[in-house]
Design a protein around this nucleic acid. Structure first.
Lengths: 239, 239
DNA sequence: CGTGCCCTTGAGTACAATCAACGTTCGTGG
DNA sequence: CCACGAACGTTGATTGTACTCAAGGGCACG
């Protein structure tokens, strides 16, 4: 059930059998949500965190103009609101982009988990720091990259992050986003996303369609988006 | 020496005398840097963290185009690379914008500090989570706000963050940024920053000059930048 | 008193937004 | 099974915000 989560953690650090068992035990229950639902609302006091088991989610901010900005995508294995453990309430919403399955871990259990395994405490701290690193990379994208570069970069990031948790299939992956949602990630309008997508297709950098993305030449896409995975911290570090 | 840092922490949680003393003891030495120096280089293995005692710094990413993007500003009281404790190396650089004084805290000391005071461990986790929250707000700014809104928003953020650590003076604060550096925060060109700044001045929202910013009507600036400080987590939460 | 950095201004351009309409797909109910 | 509607994707024409290029001015510092 939490295999993807363990893969994600173990890509960065080693997790003992004991720790693994303790994580499993910390799960209080499993909840299902349909697509397009706001699962966590900003500003609300929280007493539990959610671990994404299946589906895609996004952190969103609603702007006064009525527009939305997505600040991070979440895939299976991601702890979507672990930071609420220290923040108590969130500054953004978390919504489901597809139907989702989520494991509920009460903050009390998180507390016990890291009291018992301080090492896990540091691993989870690391995870939230990696989220921050992803935010910084998006800041750089939005601030300094063109629409085409931004989009290429994002498709690379998604590929690498999904690969870590075993959700890719060769050079492709399931891809449920609408062009509007993609626009909300990239800070563009849906119309311009459509045109940029066509340009990426024309350059043979990507094949998108029917819920699936294929990247025929990852190196080329990487170059188009000046993508460097260093910000994802994929090396394993000694405990 | 670390008064600003304590103010920052105590704006969010209570810190005991014992904890305060332990933080002081964790400091290994103090270093001085001139302006415009890269103090922390991305990708380099780190064994210590730096606490900013005086001056302004910035997290920067160098883009292949030769441009730079700043993803966060750092003021006195900020732990500029606390996240290197778990990340081991950084995905970005940290540079001085002015002459700076920094306290050096070896990771080993951070480790001892949080082993001895698990509560402090959570407080520092919280601090890095607030950094992530600031990143998300910048993402929203860069993705969905106009140049004028972005700039107004940033001047509000700076004011509030400086106020927490007692670095404001009435409605104004010392402000050392060049227009190029401001452009690197906002994802704009220096030329457009110049024009946007003039527009803010024309609308009487801000007075900038000779190393100082004055905000005659904070409410108005807030409205212009749709600034809401919730993302800075300034309430005190029970331990 | 020059030199370099920063700020300012103007003219022309371009990337992405806006506005508007049409096409496609898919789920649903008659 | 087909008709309908809604959501999503596509296209064209036009506009506008911010970029580019270029030059000049102010000021501090050696």
């Amino acid at each position: 059930m939490i295999e993807s989560h363990l893969k994600k953690l173990r890509a960065r650090d080693s997790i003992s059998q004991e720790e693994e068992a303790a994580i499993r035990d910390a799960i209080f229950e499993v909840r299902e949500f349909p697509a397009d639902v706001e699962v966590v609302h900003h500003g609300v006091d929280m007493s539990e965190s959610l671990l994404l088991l299946q589906g895609w989610m996004a952190r969103t901010k609603n702007m006064s103009s009525g527009q939305q900005q997505i600040s991070e995508l979440q895939f299976c294995g991601d702890f979507v609101d672990l930071h609420s453990f220290t923040l108590k309430r969130l500054d953004h919403n978390v919504m489901s982009l597809t139907a989702c399955r989520l494991a509920v871990i009460p903050h009390e259990n998180v507390r016990r988990l890291i009291d018992r395994f301080p090492h896990l405490g540091r691993v989870y701290w690391l995870m939230t720091n990696i989220d921050a690193s992803i935010h910084r990379e998006w800041t750089a994208s939005l601030g300094r990259r063109s629409a085409l570069e931004r989009m290429a970069h994002l498709f690379c990031e998604i590929f690498v992050r999904l690969k870590v948790v075993g959700q890719t299939n060769g050079t492709s992956y399931d891809y449920p986003l609408t062009q509007l949602e993609l626009a909300e990630c990239l800070g563009l309008t849906p119309v311009h996303v459509n045109r940029t997508l066509q340009e990426l297709r024309k350059r043979k950098l990507i094949e998108v369609g029917r819920g699936r993305v294929n990247i025929p030449d990852f190196q080329a896409l990487t170059a188009a988006g000046e993508f460097d995975p260093e910000y994802l911290y994929l090396e394993k570090r000694p405990r």
